[in-house]
Design a binder for these strands. Sequence first.
DNA 1: CAAACAGATTTTGTATCCAAAGTTAAGATC
DNA 2: GATCTTAACTTTGGATACAAAATCTGTTTG
Lengths: 239, 239
Amino acid sequence: MSSSSQRVLAVVRRQILNGERMPGEKITEVGIAAEMDVSRTPTRTALATLAAEGLIEKRSGRGFTVRSISSADVEKSIAVRAALEALAARTMAENGMPKSAEDALLQSIAYTEKVLDADEPDPDYMDGYQEANILFHETIMYQCGNDLIAHAYERIAMLPLAALGSLAFDRTNPRRELQRLTVGHSQHIIIFDAIKKRDAARAEAMMREHSHATLNYADLFVKRIYETGGAAAETAALK
Amino acid sequence: MSSSSQRVLAVVRRQILNGERMPGEKITEVGIAAEMDVSRTPTRTALATLAAEGLIEKRSGRGFTVRSISSADVEKSIAVRAALEALAARTMAENGMPKSAEDALLQSIAYTEKVLDADEPDPDYMDGYQEANILFHETIMYQCGNDLIAHAYERIAMLPLAALGSLAFDRTNPRRELQRLTVGHSQHIIIFDAIKKRDAARAEAMMREHSHATLNYADLFVKRIYETGGAAAETAALK
DNA sequence: CAAACAGATTTTGTATCCAAAGTTAAGATC
DNA sequence: GATCTTAACTTTGGATACAAAATCTGTTTG
């Protein structure tokens, strides 16, 4: 794909994820094309991609609508991601850890360690922690030796909160967040160790546990967001 | 999508899976469009879908090429399918088995039982067994309560041998095949029982074991096909 | 003989036009 | 007043035209 269709895809996707386009909102080829000042052709390919990603739904003869995401949907997408990640961890343990993967994982671990060892929790580091977390998970996903895992993952990656690192840092409770990070970090180390020692069963089990913890946390977090989601979304739409 | 693009998609996909289009063979929008006597527009959407399915690869500026599938690729796709199916079995056990799913699963089990109880193995029944097998697996996949599992599955379903029921019946060794079917059938019954009793751990473990057995069998089977694949493919291309 | 340049060809991306399918709304009829 | 019918409109799918980008080829030059 090239510039026009890529631009439309990126812009509309961002608008949906940012809540600028409300769930249930109608989306048509002509509407988007006029709005973005391009023809229907690139708009078409962009909308097809968004539909494949699950962000919009096709209503035969009535255009597309922005898909409304329930907290149940979020749980579902995280469950699928967890299963794929567990498989990826097992696969990398079986195939052996490539040098490039080892470097990336160690880099992720080192960064997180630096954050946790700081004298007092610095909120600015937390963004970095997110990056380090994403690096850890994506490294295992993409370098495990089975590219189809990442391929399947990418199909659900755009759904809210299925994306790695989509969990925001809860600034109202920094101590609890730090505890969560500490536990997550220890799990990362165990997973790294298990893969390095080619203990496939342990790597898979630990990754499963790790994802499950994230899932439980996300569950609580999401319910808090989505219960007040109506107001927040309206605010976003009004500006 | 409508008739033209759907037709192009179905035809080209079948051609690739049948070996009528060789791995590495060049595919262009204009070429397919002329061959199928349609314009480039539906051809383009069809090729985009095939690329998403992983059957063809995009070579920027040089059209697409039919992806060559190694036996390693087959193993990979089956591993992903197995992980998704295990998750589906667990999920349905957790959520409870819908009535429609119970009917379908019992129908599948009953049909397979009839095949196995026949006085002598009738090869004609084997096609029916494949259908019953597909029914069993798809019912769990599509009615487990997490539609994203099926969504992810459909992204890899078209890769050779990842598709349910793509394993042909080995007619040269009917007794062994019957044994395999018998074991598989017993596993189906256990999986059904575990889901019905909402024993999620057992359902997941049993489905994992079941898929693993299929994987191991597929491995042997595939290597036999693909080792002689060059000759067979050439034959297909020459006629 | 190798490398580089230029022209030709292929391939793709975008715009626009046309037709078909389906949806909505208004009016007529019972 | 309710329902059926019809007509206008919306929306999408497909065809064609055009332009730009990339690749290939053939020739020329060092």
